[in-house]
């Protein structure tokens, strides 16, 4: 009970902290909107040549673009979450102090990252989506139940995204160049999440395969829920897919962390 209270305090702290970066939020919204326009025009050209590509009509494809921009910060596809600070603590050795605290390292960072994601969903999600809806004809659902299902899927997407970023951040224990790791993580995330192009457009068995990777849980699945491309049982299956990856990656993260901790203890930092 006390622990729960502690984590909820950390979570609220994460939310509030990002809420204070007002200029950064406006700057981020601006950038998301610019990218939204660029991608929307290319998608428009693509779908005007091939209507129904990837199972979406043009309005759905454009909606996909703006869902992506609205969720980009929330699922931290291009970084900007807890990982920078975490890696900094690993690099400076401060992480050793954290390990002695009577809290779980992974859950602590998760709580803080959930708070951040909550703020980013509101602060960086709503505005680009509104601009997108104003400038293009989007296919947004009107049923509250779809939005509710989408909200659940976004939460699960943040969990998977956190677990993946945690793993990449742990590399800082072994690799010197943590900036390189972040770039790598970003490039993989942008391509395999569907941010660049919906995964349903990817050809053949390659297309099938990429939809089974954890990055698909970060954007493709929530987007399909909101676009109505997943309905009924498919929504639940989507949640299951996300939850499954979250569980697996959390477990792997803990195992890798245990290895890293042993290294810290042995080498003394």
């Amino acid at each position: 009970m006390r622990l729960l209270l502690l984590y909820s305090t950390v979570l609220r702290g994460g939310f509030r902290r990002y809420a204070t970066y007002r200029v950064a939020t406006v700057a981020g919204v601006f950038t998301n909107t610019v990218f939204g326009f660029i991608l929307a025009y290319t998608f428009q050209a693509l779908w005007s040549e091939r209507p129904r590509l990837g199972g979406y009509d043009e309005a759905q494809a454009l909606t996909f673009v703006w869902i992506g921009q609205a969720m980009l910060a929330t699922v931290a596809l291009m970084g900007g979450g807890f990982e920078e600070e975490f890696q900094q603590r690993i690099r400076t050795g401060d992480v050793a102090v954290d390990l002695y605290r009577p809290i779980d390292l992974q859950l602590w960072w998760l709580a803080s990252d959930l708070g951040r994601a909550g703020f980013h969903l509101l602060g960086r999600g709503v505005a680009p989506m509104a601009v997108g809806a104003f400038a293009f004809d989007l296919a947004l659902p009107s049923e509250p139940s779809v939005w509710a299902a989408f909200a659940v899927s976004v939460l699960l997407a943040v969990l998977v995204s956190f677990a993946v970023r945690y793993l990449f951040a742990l590399c800082a224990f072994w690799l010197l160049d943590s900036h390189g790791v972040s770039t790598l993580s970003t490039l993989l995330g942008v391509f395999f999440s569907g941010m660049l192009l919906p995964l349903t457009v990817f050809p053949g068995s390659f297309g099938e395969a990429v939809q089974q990777l954890p990055w698909a849980a970060m954007l493709q699945v929530p987007a399909d829920v909101l676009l109505g491309a997943r309905e009924g049982g498919d929504v639940v299956a989507g949640w299951g897919f996300q939850l499954g990856w979250a569980a697996v990656l959390f477990a792997v993260g803990r195992a890798v962390q245990a290895l890293a901790v042993r290294r810290v203890v042995v080498q003394g930092g």
Binding site: V23, A27, G28, T31
Partner: peptide
């Protein structure tokens, strides 16, 4: 505007 580094990314 020290916090506006993201505008540059656009």
């Amino acid at each position: 505007a020290q916090d506006a580094s993201e505008v540059q990314n656009a």
